[in-house]
């Protein structure tokens, strides 16, 4: 999952730094993730993992770092398995 997220970030994130140099916990907004790019990233994630982000998770915190995105996506996948 980490790899898929990093691939997407490289493709749509438009960051001024190389994604490979970002640590999992690094603040993506501070690294230059714009709000438009973050939406592109969300769309990419929905497509890649065949999920839909519920409204409650559509906030800055859920997408603030690679680790946070992993947690958000896992949370949705787990909720789906449980259902």
């Amino acid at each position: 999952m980490n790899e898929t997220i990093r691939e997407l970030l490289t493709r749509v994130g438009g960051l001024p730094v190389a994604v490979t140099e970002l640590e999992d916990g690094a603040d993506l907004y501070a690294a230059g993730l714009s709000s438009f790019a973050s939406v592109q990233l969300m769309l990419g994630l929905e497509e890649a993992f065949d999920i839909e982000f519920p409204d409650s998770l559509l906030n800055r915190k859920s997408f603030a770092s690679i680790a946070a995105i992993e947690q958000t996506v896992s949370h949705i996948l787990k909720a789906r398995e449980a259902a």
């Binding site: 709000s35 939406v39 769309l43």
Partner: peptide
Amino acid sequence: NTSTMLLVQK
């Protein structure tokens, strides 16, 4: 901005 958000927001 709103139309961008509406791409994912329900």
